[in-house]
């Protein structure tokens, strides 16, 4: 009996010491519900010296289609794209270009041949390289997962919305515009 009592008491003591300290329970109530996980949002980025802060979706499309050659500050537009196989590139082809990979290649090859498009987009191998290129080139525009954006580049609003707004449309795996 004594042994049993001792064991029960010991168990109670152990449970008391193992209880988490008061106030450490994670409070989830009251936090706003987030529509998108940050790493799935595609942010449009430009060089920090670019005065453009907002683009309509149609303007964004024209820029990436090669129909815009100059920014308002006179710098030449340099469109950057990731290599095929990157999910970010798939989102751009699906939602911005509205083209397949083959149609995209044909569009720029024919555009440079007819003279409609002065320069094709620059293809870069990774998000890190793309971010560094946009940092260096005053006229560059590109895209990154929101989680890959840092202070070296500027995020542009699309139709007035930032990537963490509910109305923002560019998302990896989403329905798109």
């Amino acid at each position: 009996m004594r042994l049993l009592r001792a064991l029960l008491i010991w168990l109670a003591v152990v449970l008391l010491f193992d209880l988490p300290p008061h106030g450490s329970v994670e409070a989830t109530a009251g936090l706003p519900e987030r529509r998108n996980v940050p790493h799935e949002i595609l942010a449009i980025i430009v060089n920090r010296s670019n005065p453009v802060k907002n683009l309509t979706f149609e303007e964004l499309r024209k820029i990436f289609m090669g129909e815009r050659s100059r920014w308002p500050n006179g710098h030449r537009v340099i469109v950057t794209m990731m290599e095929p196989g990157h999910p970010e590139r798939e989102v751009m082809l699906r939602d911005v270009y509205r083209m397949t990979e083959k149609d995209y290649l044909d569009h720029f090859l024919k555009g440079t041949y007819t003279g409609d498009i002065p320069v094709s987009p620059k293809t870069l191998s990774s998000s890190d390289i793309l971010r560094k290129f946009v940092f260096n080139a005053p006229g560059a525009i590109g895209y990154l997962r929101a989680s890959d954006v840092d202070g070296s580049v500027k995020v542009v609003r699309i139709d007035g919305h930032l990537p963490d707004d509910l109305e923002y449309k560019l998302q990896i795996g989403g329905l798109g515009k």
């Binding site: 290129f133 940092f135 260096n136």
Partner: peptide
């Protein structure tokens, strides 16, 4: 200057920087 540009292929850096002197 930011250390961000260290590690970019030199051709890419040159092209990017050539924008400053058109």
């Amino acid at each position: 200057q930011s250390p961000a540009h260290v590690g970019i292929p030199s051709e890419t850096v040159a092209e990017g920087q050539s924008e400053a002197a058109p």
